[in-house]
């Protein structure tokens, strides 16, 4: 055991140091996501995880995905989360007792079993014998990904775009219906809708001002 550790540390390259640095950042910020009580801080910690994983993508010579990870995940998805958190004015989690405390006692062992299963799968699968591919650097370029995406995998690409379309419509429908029900609950829909102002009157006002 100790020999293995000293062997491991005797041939460390700069790549190792960068991997360990970003792995520690990723794990620490992932823990922070789970342990923070305020969802806003969780979202900010998740940005750090994304950035550290993007650095790992660069170590794996997937430059295009590293850029996309920062732009799409940290730049768009997390911003969407932060928008919603601020829109809803969410307070920090109340520290009152949860209803399903028994569930938590099942959750901890199942998490341990999950990691043990993953660890055993990695340990007994001879992954270390997998040599790095010499074409790895060529496989991660924008050019190569575009080539594969628009020839062999055109159908999944189009399916993804249809999915995004459906998601946009679905999100709009959800938000609109929620508003409708709100109005119904507060009895607004029973009141008379005030008539809209005449559109012809507007140009005159503009001319006067």
């Amino acid at each position: 055991m100790f020999d293995a550790i000293t062997n491991y540390f005797s041939n460390l390259t700069p790549e190792h140091y960068f991997f360990f640095l970003f792995a520690i950042v990723a794990i620490a910020s992932a823990l922070e996501v789970v342990m923070q009580r305020s969802p806003l801080y969780s979202a900010v910690a998740l940005i750090f995880t994304m950035a550290a994983l993007a650095a790992n993508f660069v170590l794996l010579k997937a430059q295009f995905l590293a850029a996309i990870q920062i732009i799409v995940y940290a730049g768009a998805i997390i911003v969407l989360f932060v928008f919603v958190i601020m829109l809803l004015n969410v307070r920090a989690e109340e520290s009152r007792l949860d209803r399903f405390t028994a569930l938590r006692w099942i959750a901890a062992p199942s998490a341990i079993v999950l990691f043990a299963g993953a660890f055993a799968a990695i340990r007994f699968s001879n992954l270390d014998t997998l040599a790095p591919s010499p074409t790895a650097a060529a496989a991660g370029t924008t050019e190569r990904i575009a080539e594969v995406m628009f020839t062999k995998y055109l159908l999944p690409f189009e399916a993804a775009s249809v999915l995004i379309m459906m998601a946009i419509v679905g999100a709009l429908v959800l938000a609109a219906r929620a508003k409708e029900y709100d109005a119904e609950l507060s009895g607004i829909e029973n009141q008379e809708v005030p008539p809209k102002p005449e559109p012809e009157a507007q140009p005159e006002e503009v001319e006067v001002s």
């Binding site: 996309i68 989360f81 496989a139 991660g140 990904i145 459906m166 999100a171």
Partner: peptide, 29 residues
């Protein structure tokens, strides 16, 4: 994907990111 020198795995990551964006939009709605 990087260790097999195959671009397909990276393409799947792209698709996963798309699905994650859709999931975030609908989930937050």
């Amino acid at each position: 994907a990087s260790y097999f020198g195959d671009t397909t795995g990276q393409l799947f990551v792209f698709i996963v990111m798309t699905v994650a964006a859709a999931e975030a939009a609908v989930g937050l709605g």
